[in-house]
């Protein structure tokens, strides 16, 4: 357990020193700051762009601000996360830095889990900061709106980010090159998103956490409906990490 803590600390230090964590935080904070602003300015932008047709654009609301935020985080934000963390394990095995660590008293499982934990810490801190900025700006720009279940809605997107991280760590532990690992991560993520389009299972898949969490804010979807996706999301995360540890342990360095 102490090795898990030691190596997680090293991972966090590395993310600061190599600017990986800083880059993730910067991208997410920018999304948190600009999403409400974009929602507010979008009608003005359309009006100022002379499209040659008269557009009837309804006045934006706080829901547009959060919709923009979840769209940015759920797409670009997670793509950045996947690109950064798809190399978490594989970059160490290809460079050879993992050999010196794993020939000490650090187990393969602690190596993989430390990387997941540090990535999850950076994701959590960055996402929390981003969500806080978005909330403050939304309150400022759309003072009339009062979203319901805001924290729960934010939690659903956070959990989907954690699942994405587990997918990245899984691919990184399984594949022997960064490119393959990134492709593998996107494949798992893509499969998840595909399930949200399948009528029979779309309400139960973990992808529901990111596709329908906005509906929590205006009461269009009750929180109870997220129970199964949350449980399945946690189980999927555990499964991906367990498989990553088992496969990595069987891999020669």
């Amino acid at each position: 357990m102490s090795n898990l803590f030691t190596f997680t600390k090293k991972e966090l230090y590395e993310q600061i020193k190599t600017f990986k964590g800083v880059a993730v935080a910067a991208v997410l904070l920018v999304f948190g700051m600009t999403s409400p602003l974009l929602a507010k300015l979008m009608p003005e932008i359309f009006k100022s762009a002379d499209l040659g047709v008269a557009l009837q654009i309804p006045d934006p609301t706080y829901l547009d601000a959060y919709a923009q935020f979840f769209k940015n985080i759920g797409e670009m934000g997670l793509i950045v996360i996947m690109l950064v963390y798809a190399g978490a394990v594989v970059s160490e095995t290809t460079r050879g830095t993992a050999t010196l660590m794993l020939t000490k008293r650090l187990s393969h499982s602690a190596f993989v889990i430390s990387k997941f934990l540090s990535a999850a810490i950076v994701w959590t801190a960055s996402y929390a900061g981003s969500a806080a900025l978005c909330t403050v700006y939304t309150i400022y720009l759309f003072p009339e709106g009062k979203p319901s279940n805001l924290l729960f809605s934010l939690f659903c997107m956070w959990l989907f980010g954690v699942i994405t991280l587990a997918a990245a760590l899984f691919a990184s532990a399984v594949f022997k090159s960064y490119i393959l690992s990134a492709v593998g991560t996107f494949a798992v993520w893509g499969l998840l998103l595909v399930t949200s389009a399948l009528p029979k299972i779309k309400d139960y898949t973990p992808a529901f956490l990111s596709s329908d969490n906005l509906k929590l804010l205006n009461g269009a979807c009750p929180p109870d409906k997220f129970q199964i996706p949350i449980i399945l999301g946690i189980l999927l995360t555990a499964l991906l990490l367990t498989l990553a540890c088992i496969i990595f342990r069987r891999r020669e360095l």
Partner: peptide, 10 residues
């Protein structure tokens, strides 16, 4: 204690 042929460090 192990030193591989091409040791790589952080």
């Amino acid at each position: 204690g192990y030193l591989p042929d091409v040791p790589e460090f952080y």
